[in-house]
């Protein structure tokens, strides 16, 4: 199967600090790839390089290639198109201070969709996909910040879905949520992978085990081991991986 994202010998610097060392990995389409590792290991940094959110950080330098469907995203790729195709869900839910409807319609609107009927359809579809439609369909005009944390996060996922992405990056999407909300997001991820390629950074080992198809373990900016999640969790090759996932360090 052809890789959705292909990362080749990627080095990343924050100023003088080298955050990623020659990372190479292949992300398969319609799979959930979990990036795990101790804090500061470079997993979030790697995630940010995939939709060039790292561009916002002053003094960051990228060396190496990231191919998305065969195109180098650090080449001539239009950054707006890239972020449209590779959406991102953040650590803590960050709905905008506007209505639920406007939150979802925000993306389509900035990409030029103005027709009310089309927007209505997109909003409903995205909310349904994010499994939150039934809960909030009667208060679309209500403030998004009035929702519970778990609902807010699913709303944020719906907001990403509304721009019809191809890949969804998730940066510890459940770290701010309670167990039930976490379960819901995990179920949602399992459902979404049928249509999207998902890359998730998580500190929660169990979560990586539960939801991902393959897992990449990072340590000090190096990709220590990557493989099928069953393999990583049942019989990893690297002793460091085993120590980390069994909680012996990190």
């Amino acid at each position: 199967m052809r890789s959705k994202l292909s990362i080749k010998e990627l080095d990343f610097y924050y100023g003088d600090f080298k955050a990623l060392h020659k990372v190479s990995m292949e992300i398969e389409p319609n799979k959930v790839t979990a990036l795990i590792g101790p804090s500061g290991c470079g997993k979030s940094t790697l995630l940010k390089t995939l939709n060039r959110m790292n561009d916002l950080v002053a003094g960051s330098v990228v060396d190496g290639t990231v191919l998305y469907d065969g195109d180098d995203i650090y080449g001539k790729y239009d950054i707006i198109q890239l972020r449209k195709k590779i959406g991102m869900v953040f650590q803590s839910p960050n709905p905008f201070a506007m209505s639920i409807y406007d939150n979802i319609a925000y993306g389509p609107r900035i990409h030029g969709i103005k027709n009310k009927k089309v927007l209505d359809r997109i909003v409903e579809k995205s909310l349904r996909q994010a499994a939150i439609w039934e809960e909030i369909k009667n208060r679309l005009k209500g403030p998004a910040l009035g929702l519970s944390g778990g609902q807010q996060q699913r709303l944020c996922i719906a907001r990403v879905l509304a721009v019809e992405p191809d890949v969804i990056l998730m940066d510890e999407p459940t770290s701010a949520l309670d167990p039930v909300s976490t379960s819901r997001i995990e179920d949602l991820i399992d459902e979404l992978k049928k249509e999207y390629t998902i890359i998730i950074v998580t500190h929660n080992m169990q979560q990586a085990g539960r939801i991902s198809d393959s897992t990449a373990f990072f340590l000090n900016g190096y990709l220590e081991e990557m493989g099928a999640t069953e393999k990583i969790f049942f019989n990893p090759d690297s002793k460091k991986t085993e120590d980390y996932i069994s909680g012996k360090f990190g």
């Binding site: 916002l56 449209k84 990403v160 721009v163």
Partner: peptide, 8 residues
């Protein structure tokens, strides 16, 4: 960040 990540 959320807005920029949506391509705004």
């Amino acid at each position: 960040a959320g807005s920029l990540a949506l391509g705004a």
